[in-house]
């Protein structure tokens, strides 16, 4: 899923300074699962915003709403009849949701309330970690199911670097060395011969470096 964290309140309060009535808009997908921008977080931020503005003596009306999916024009359309009554939309969706609103409602200011972080998985309750960098050409089949792009601090394809120590990455004791994990899993799978093969320089065109990406499914596109 896409993970995110709420922006600091100081930044949020500053960004809504000019407004007196906002729509605080959550999303029922990834940001709900990572507790950054679902119904619950919308309610919490709504309360915090009202309190924060009252404390300044500048009360603000905060309407709370959570869409099924903010990155989908179909659901964003729901706002069309009511949106004009607000000064701005404060979106708690990931950057994709924020932009879908911006695209559909060109004259409505949209403020991001969260910092979109990474594509990750839940390690344990309340802990999420990066797992995929969306490189567009997945190599997990050669690396024991552990991603060298997203999980090695130097995205090394023929690792590990000299900094790998006791299973940890040189950058921090809190970060596992991806190549230690890869090696351990290859051993587990009886696939250590995969390690000896030189992995070729990556074609980063399929990643962001080829310019903004797009998927068109001709069997589906109307």
């Amino acid at each position: 899923m896409i993970t995110a964290t709420r922006k600091p309140m100081e930044e949020i309060l500053k960004s809504v300074e000019p407004f007196s009535k906002i729509l605080l808009l959550g999303c029922n997908e990834c940001v709900t699962v990572c507790h950054a921008g679902g119904r619950k977080e919308v309610a919490l931020l709504g309360a915090a915003l009202r309190l924060g503005r009252l404390q300044k003596g500048l009360p603000m009306e905060v309407e709370e709403l959570t869409l099924e999916r903010q990155c989908d024009p179909e659901y964003v359309e729901e706002l069309s009849r009511t949106i004009d009554q607000y000064d701005a939309v404060c979106s708690m969706a990931c950057g994709c949701g924020v932009q879908t609103i911006a695209e559909r409602y060109p004259s409505m200011p949209v403020m991001p309330m969260v910092n979109t972080a990474f594509m990750g998985a839940s390690e344990s309750h309340g802990v999420w970690a990066e797992r995929c960098a969306g490189c567009g050409d997945c190599v997990l089949g050669y690396t024991g199911g552990i991603c060298p792009v997203a999980r090695c601090s130097k995205r090394i394809f023929n690792g590990p670097c000299g900094g790998s120590t006791k299973g940890k990455c040189e950058i921090s004791n809190d970060v596992d060395c991806a190549w230690q994990l890869i090696w351990d899993r290859l051993k587990e799978l009886g696939q250590t011969e995969l390690y000896s093969k030189l992995m070729e320089p990556k074609d980063w065109r399929t990643a962001r470096d080829g310019g903004p990406r797009r998927i068109v499914r001709e069997d589906m596109a109307l």
Partner: peptide, 18 residues
């Protein structure tokens, strides 16, 4: 460069080979 004492130890000579 090569680090003969880095971790994981089993990979050190293999990586030299690469």
């Amino acid at each position: 460069a090569a680090n003969p004492f880095g971790d994981p130890f089993e990979l050190r000579v293999l990586r030299l080979g690469k």
